[in-house]
């Protein structure tokens, strides 16, 4: 039994960590309900006519972070969504980039994972080892072959990002990890009834690995919604950029709608997270190499 004081200590430690972890997200969320003017006044780097009364040092104007806006308003969001067509376009770009990658990864890797797990091919484990090695390589390293092939096939823009991502070995690995946990008896029974691999795969295995497919989709979504490196290399025109790249530039300029733009960009991931947290945790556990 834990002592009362120990319990209190544990809870206060947890609370402290929770505050640290939540603080950046919470600030971004609450400050997105500031007016454009207030955001500019609070966060502008240099003194101007609008913020001369705030504390600062030799011309530097300190950011005045606050959890509560002086005035709660949706002005940032309306400016963002109706002020210019740019953000909706960039948001669509992110969808155009992410959706085909998720669909492609699932369609390509789920059958391949089943084949790896059930086939008795001689060299399959050697091939699988190559999959794992490529999966573990840092992105900047695998980008080199991706880039060479894109140049060779004359692919550019979205295709140059989507196609290699679809063939990324991660999905095969994740789904196979899940398949390893399914008892052979399921397929055994169907086999006795005379079902072949195609029938077993479609009618028995697929329903059993729905969870793993959900985990895979969520992890791929989070990864590519956040795409930066590939986009910087492959996408030349700024109207085609995903929101991620644009935001890092906007942050440097420090516009008054930056908080709303940041929130706008993270809402889809928050939604997926709230509905799919269990699948995500399961995916993380599956991706643990054993």
């Amino acid at each position: 039994m834990l002592h009362r004081a120990a319990k209190l200590l544990i809870f206060s430690l947890l609370l402290l960590f929770a505050v640290i972890f939540l603080f950046p997200v919470l600030i971004t969320l609450t400050n997105s309900f500031m007016s454009v003017f207030e955001a500019a006044r609070r966060y502008s780097a240099w003194f101007s006519a609008a913020n001369t009364y705030d504390a600062g040092f030799e011309g530097i104007h300190y950011a005045r972070v606050s959890l509560t806006p002086d005035l709660v308003t949706l002005k940032q969001y309306t400016a963002l969504l109706f002020g210019s067509p740019l953000y909706l376009g960039l948001f669509l770009n992110s969808i155009k980039l992410t959706a085909p990658i998720i669909a492609g990864q699932v369609i390509i890797s789920v059958p391949a994972a089943y084949a790896f797990e059930t086939s008795r091919l001689k060299f399959k484990e050697a091939l699988y080892f190559i999959y794992v090695v490529i999966m573990l390589l840092p992105l900047q390293v695998t980008l080199v072959p991706n880039f060479i092939m894109a140049g060779f096939l004359n692919m550019n823009g979205y295709l140059a990002i989507i196609i290699p991502a679809v063939f990324s070995p991660f999905g095969v690995f994740l789904v196979r990890q899940n398949l390893k946990g399914i008892p052979g008896e399921y397929a055994e029974a169907a086999k006795i009834d005379g079902a072949g691999h195609v029938k077993i795969f479609i009618y028995i295995i697929l329903p059993l690995i729905k969870g793993a497919v959900a985990s895979l989709s969520i992890l791929v979504f989070i990864e590519y919604w956040n795409v930066v490196d590939q986009a910087v290399i492959f996408i030349k025109e700024s109207v085609h950029e995903p929101l991620s790249v644009y935001l890092s530039r906007l942050a440097g300029e420090g516009g008054g709608v930056i908080f709303a733009a940041s929130c706008f960009y993270m809402f889809p991931t928050l939604l997926v997270f709230l509905y799919g947290q269990e699948y995500m945790a399961e995916g993380i556990q599956l991706s643990g190499i054993k």
Binding site: L121, T142, P145, V172, G196, H197, V198
Partner: peptide, 30 residues
Amino acid sequence: AAKRIKGEGVLILLLLPSAAGLFMFYIAPF
């Protein structure tokens, strides 16, 4: 435990798209 399911050849077809893509975009260019 699932051994000797008929149509072993079909597995190669299931694996092929993934392996070909990996070869083409990762292994060969490297």
